[in-house]
Design a protein around this nucleic acid. Sequence first.
DNA 1: TTAATATCCGACTGCATTAGTCTTGCTTCC
DNA 2: GGAAGCAAGACTAATGCAGTCGGATATTAA
Lengths: 152, 152
Amino acid sequence: MLRLTKKADYGLMALKYLAEQADSGAQSAKDVAEAYHIPPQLLAKILQTLAKAGLLVSHAGTNGGYALARPAQDISAFEVIRAIDGPLFITSCITIHGTCDLHGTCTIKEPLRKVNDSIKELLSGIHVSDLIEPAEASPAAALAGGLVSIAL
Amino acid sequence: MLRLTKKADYGLMALKYLAEQADSGAQSAKDVAEAYHIPPQLLAKILQTLAKAGLLVSHAGTNGGYALARPAQDISAFEVIRAIDGPLFITSCITIHGTCDLHGTCTIKEPLRKVNDSIKELLSGIHVSDLIEPAEASPAAALAGGLVSIAL
DNA sequence: TTAATATCCGACTGCATTAGTCTTGCTTCC
DNA sequence: GGAAGCAAGACTAATGCAGTCGGATATTAA
């Protein structure tokens, strides 16, 4: 249930890598792909998508590559996922047009929309900077990422 | 992103229907399917799954059908979704065995597992009874469903 | 100017999952 | 016994995802 696509996974991993290597200048798609054993051509397309979404800046040519467009703590996981997987929703009901294809008989829509929004907020509270240092509990992240409270 | 399957949607809708009609005894799969314009045979299989999971009780024969195994407020959305869609996870990384197929190079896993757990808690706080009366904000649900607080 | 490096972009294929159908058998009630 | 209903598995069609291929364009270094 609720699976994220592999592309989104790859995208988050790449952003984390770029955040860590921010001092070393731009990194090529190939470098990132090799670091994580991701198919290079696939990652290239993902990075292109992220660049088009304004999360990365790209620079062609020799010694070119990708770099974060903003500081790592200003890029949320939600933005990354939405850029890659598109603005899909938790229910099959709720389409992009906001219409329910079940002839209005679907009364499930409204409660689940709130769940949807809650997850959205949850992901918005997580930033690329929080992904670094995976092993420990990172008290900084607890402060920055914050406490997400959700009322139904 | 994060789409629920149509089957899970159908399942939740069916449970809501059964909760509303709890006084009228068992309802046949066909009745529920007609009420929501769902393919009858598909819904039948979904209801069978829910019955096997212990969320519904089935009664064969004439005037048979399905009924809730427990009160509506004791059945959480999480149980329904897990019964239908299986124990899948937000990341493609985390498999049922808890292993990451990316050679341990995936450092994204741990932070996303927390998100996964948070969503799980969020869905566990929603019950079938909360799905009834969709239009209003249902203060009862806010009390019962509660406030979910998540620290990263 | 040329060659190397790298992004950019669309089309294509194979695969897995999902949605839905069909058929057959079993159970209960009248 | 027959009708109504559940139970269950095999099957097909459609969709979306993962990954590949080929080529075009931009930038830099020599």
